[in-house]
Amino acid sequence: MELALIFDLILLITLIALAWLLLASSDIFRAVVLFIAFGLLLALAWVRLGAPDVALAEAAIGAGITGALLLVGLGRLGSAEHYRGTRTRLTFLQRLSAPVLIGVMIPSISLILLLELSLHASATPGQQGLVNVLLDVSGTNHGVTAVLMNFRAWDTLLEKGVLLLALISIWSLDQARPLFRQNDISPQLTGLARLLLPIMIIVAGFVLWQGDHAPGGAFQSGAILSAGILLAILVGYTLPTRRQGLSLRLLLAVGFSVFLLVAAATLLSSDYLLKYPDSLAGSLILLLELVATASIAALLAAAVVGGHPPDDLSKPVDRSSAVNGGQT
């Protein structure tokens, strides 16, 4: 017991120190690397709190994908950083707002909450009991999956929508630019990718399957798959141009659309939104998880690539070439 306490204390102190270091760092690259380390340690903290599902998501999405997004963003910024433009002088209130917010508001809110929370030391067990009672009819054997995919499936549906919406927002801003020059790829990386890619696909499949009875599921599995896709992009794989149109958009949207279709079908047949028929619940959840994994992997990877694929709308449609393309 004592040993665990010491471990927790070290973890906490490291977390706070990392947070401070990354906020105080004037070098953005250093701050991003520290942020990734912070995410991984935070995942460990979630494990210590007994929430392995959150830990998996934090490691895969909080540290992994967010870290990759930040690094890619930094790479884009790097060349443009010295075009800062003229800085306008801040007014007195603008000068004051940041210290007040960071120095006064946040510590005082934290202090009040800490004082109050220490009085309510015994936390409620949440709805664990109710979830366990209803687990038999949920179509899955893992409480978290049951909550996400059945009891509170409406939230999950809307979250899938948020993910797709985020990608549409990224696409609306600009066209994608190549991440790097093709002749920069090192042969070692290619060899590593050949070795790693099959393993990543298998691990992603395992994590997805795991979701039925243990921590795992679509989000974590999709994040692993998208890491695989990014690795493949790094060693020079590209999506063929003819797949960058509707096929790509279909893949990105399939997770959300199937969820919407299931919602519409349940609403039509049973008058209740997302009330799965008892006999079909298991298979429906599996279907939703499968398409969600595919979409999440594609969405996260597309977000890192950034920007929409080269436009087919800007040029007038050349009907003859379209017909020829169809015939070949």
Binding site: L130, V147, N150, R152, Y272, K275
Partner: peptide
């Protein structure tokens, strides 16, 4: 008020 999936309210989402 109905709930999504007709699950009871401490768990389900009221609409």
């Amino acid at each position: 008020t109905i709930t999504a999936g007709n699950w009871p309210t401490p768990l389900g989402i009221a609409l």
